[in-house]
Computed example of a mutant assay.
Amino acid sequence: MVNSTERHQFILNKVQKEGFIQVVDLCKELKVSSVTIRKDLKLLEDKNLLFRTHGGASVNNPYTVDKPVNEKEKLQAGEKTRIGAAAAQFIQPDDSVIIASGTTVLALAKAIKPTQRLSVVTSALNVAMELLQHEHVEVIQLGGIIRKTSSSITGTYAQNMLADFSCSKLFLGVDGIDLEFGLTTTSVVEAHLNRQMIKASQKVIVLSDSTKFGRRGFGRICGLEEANQIITDKGIPNHYVNQLEGMGIEVTIV
């Protein structure tokens, strides 16, 4: 039986290698109880060596904070560009879609090159401005209160407008994807609007770079079962791919 020092080193090596570890797996590998593992994780978190999460631990802080949109654009810019280009391939001629807010869905807007009619409902001012340059795109801008950090519209006016639309797809940006807590954003009011977008769409396509996995924003949008597809980059942890596909969610890696 390994001693506590050896256990701690094993846990740290594993979380550094995999990014996320689960209590049940550590119990099996180290042949100790879940109580012991949870005590180990608390001690290591107290030393600022990892972050505890529901059912495990992560090398990254699972709680995301709000940042201005111009700051977010600079983060994982290459990954977002590739994700946006891949998402654009799912837009069909004469399609009617909803594009939510965020820098990854802005990358989608920049990648859209329509040659036939396309109708886009959006809450994001920067998405609307990007699409105005295309003569074949009809842009329906939701109205309401402008959330400055995301350059997007929120509030009951926007939610009520969505009741008048039925779209084939929703392209949704998120701040966090957690296996237990689901899809999240840093704003509760934006989460409420996103839920109305889901109701107005036949298919939900989540656009997220891999740094969002294992993280949680303040506002819960919905459970993972509401998502039909997730487009992300190759940095996504393997255990997330396995569990998401096991739930019937299509995972597209670019």
Rank of each mutant, 00 (worst) to 15 (best):
E79K: 10
V189M: 09
L193G: 11
S119L: 07
V24E: 09
N13W: 00
M129H: 00
I221L: 10
L41W: 04
L12N: 02
K74N: 11
V204C: 15
I205A: 01
Q159T: 04
K203H: 14
S123H: 03
N228A: 15
I236V: 15
V2H: 13
I21C: 05
G78Q: 14
E29H: 02
K169F: 00
A109T: 00
E29S: 05
H8R: 15
T184N: 04
Y63K: 11
E226I: 07
I99C: 12
S150R: 06
I83Q: 01
A128S: 13
Q9H: 15
L26V: 13
G182R: 07
T53I: 15
K212R: 12
V97W: 13
K28A: 09
G223C: 09
D46Q: 14
T184Y: 00
G55P: 08
A124W: 01
T252S: 11
F181D: 07
N126A: 04
V65D: 09
I253N: 07
G102Q: 13
S123Q: 04
Y63P: 03
S58C: 10
M1T: 05
G182P: 10
I231K: 00
Y63N: 13
A86I: 06
Y240I: 07
Q229A: 14
R82Q: 05
S208N: 09
V206K: 06
S4E: 07
V206Y: 07
V120L: 08
G182H: 11
S34H: 12
L179R: 08
N160M: 13
S119V: 10
S187V: 02
F218C: 09
I198N: 06
M197F: 00
I153N: 01
S187C: 07
T115Y: 05
R52L: 07
K67Q: 13
S201V: 07
A86Q: 14
T36E: 09
G102F: 11
K234D: 12
T5A: 15
T252D: 05
F171S: 00
S119H: 05
A128N: 03
E79M: 08
P114T: 04
D95C: 13
L170A: 10
T103P: 03
Q22M: 12
I205G: 02
L44Q: 09
Q92E: 15
T252R: 06
N194E: 01
L75K: 13
A124P: 02
S166L: 03
H192Q: 15
A163D: 12
G182D: 10
E29F: 00
R38W: 05
L142D: 02
T186M: 05
D175A: 08
S150L: 12
G55M: 06
M247C: 04
I230E: 01
I177M: 10
A227E: 08
L244T: 10
G176N: 09
D95P: 08
Y240P: 05
I112E: 00
I112Q: 02
F218W: 08
D66E: 15
S123E: 03
T186G: 05
C167R: 05
V251N: 03
K80V: 05
T53C: 15
E29K: 02
L49E: 10
I230R: 01
H239D: 15
I140Q: 08
Y240V: 09
D66H: 13
I249E: 12
L49P: 05
G235L: 03
P93A: 10
Q196H: 12
L41Y: 06
G219A: 04
Q76W: 14
I98A: 02
L26E: 11
L131E: 00
I253E: 07
A109E: 02
L131K: 01
N60E: 14
G155W: 03
K234H: 14
V23L: 11
Y157P: 00
T185K: 12
